[in-house]
Amino acid sequence: MNQKITTLIHKLESHNMAGYFVNTPEELLLLIKELIPNGSSVGSGDSVTLEDTGVFEYLRNGDYNFYDKFASDLTKEQKRDIYLRNFTADTFISSANAITIDGAIFNIDGNGSRVAPILYGPKQVIIIIGINKITDDLDSAIKRTRQIAAPLDAKRLGKNTPCTSLGHCIDCKHKERICNDFVLITGQFVKDRIKVIILNENVGY
C-alpha cells in the first residue's frame, strides 16, 4: 500500500468514514464476507465494478436477502419497489464515480436511486472503487466522471445522448441525459457507516 492510499484512508477516517485496501478481487470478497453478517438484507447500486469483481454473484449465492434489481423480467414498478426497499437494507453496496485524495466521494446519478441510499437509510454503506477512480481534487473528480465514466455508462445503458457517439460530455440537455444528480460526500455523522474499499486494480468506469 503506497503513501497515496495511506493518505486517502487516513483522510476518510478523519471524516468519520472507514477505509480499507485489498490487492485482489478474492481479498475483496473475503472482506465483504467479514463486513456483511449472514442473513442481512443487502441492496445495491448499478455498478460495472461490482459486476466485474464478482460481488453481485457472491451476494446472489450467499446467505443474504439480496435485493436483486437486475433480473431481465422485472417491471418498472418492481424495480421501483426494490429502490425503495434499499433505504431499509442492513447494507447498501455500490461503487463511486470518483474519490479525491482528501477523502471526498463524488457521484453523478441519473434518477438518484444509487446516491439516495448512500446518503441516508441503510445502516451500513460499502463503496468499492478501483485505484483508477482516485483523483487529486474535486475538479479532477468531476472531470473524470463527466468525460470518462458518464459517456461509457450512457453507452452501456443504450442511451442516445451525444456523449455515446462523441465519447465525451458536452453538457447536453437530452431527455435521456444521465448526469442529473451531482453528489459530493465529505463526511458522516455516524462513524464508519460508510466504508470505502480500495481495490488495487483498474476496474469499472
Rank of each mutant, 00 (worst) to 15 (best):
E57V: 09
N65K: 07
N86T: 02
R85H: 13
K76C: 05
T49M: 10
N97F: 02
K69V: 01
T88K: 14
S95T: 13
L74K: 09
E51Y: 05
K76Y: 08
S95E: 05
T88F: 07
F56N: 09
K69H: 14
L50M: 04
D68Q: 05
D68I: 01
N61L: 10
T75I: 10
D73P: 04
V55D: 07
G62Y: 04
V55M: 02
D73Q: 06
T49E: 03
F66T: 03
D90S: 10
D63I: 00
T49A: 02
Y64S: 03
Y83H: 12
Y67W: 07
F87Y: 11
T75E: 12
V55Y: 04
D63Q: 11
R80P: 15
R60W: 12
I82S: 01
R80I: 08
I99C: 09
I93H: 01
L74F: 10
L74I: 04
L74G: 10
N97K: 02
S72H: 13
T49I: 07
Y67Q: 05
L50Q: 01
R85V: 08
N86C: 11
E51Q: 13
A71H: 04
D81K: 15
S94D: 07
Y83I: 08
L59A: 08
G62K: 15
Y58F: 15
F92Q: 10
T91F: 12
R80D: 14
A96I: 11
R80W: 13
T49P: 01
Y83K: 14
K69T: 04
T53F: 00
F56I: 08
E57C: 06
S94A: 06
F92C: 12
T88N: 12
S94H: 03
R80H: 14
A98G: 04
Y67F: 15
D73H: 14
N65D: 02
V55P: 03
T91P: 03
G54T: 05
V55G: 01
D73C: 07
N61C: 13
A71E: 05
D90E: 06
A89G: 02
I99D: 04
L84N: 13
L59E: 07
V55T: 11
K76F: 14
K79Q: 14
F87K: 06
L84V: 15
Y83G: 09
E77T: 14
K79P: 08
N86I: 00
A71V: 02
I99F: 00
K76M: 15
E57M: 05
F87T: 09
D63N: 14
N61E: 13
Y64F: 13
Y83Q: 15
R85K: 15
I93F: 00
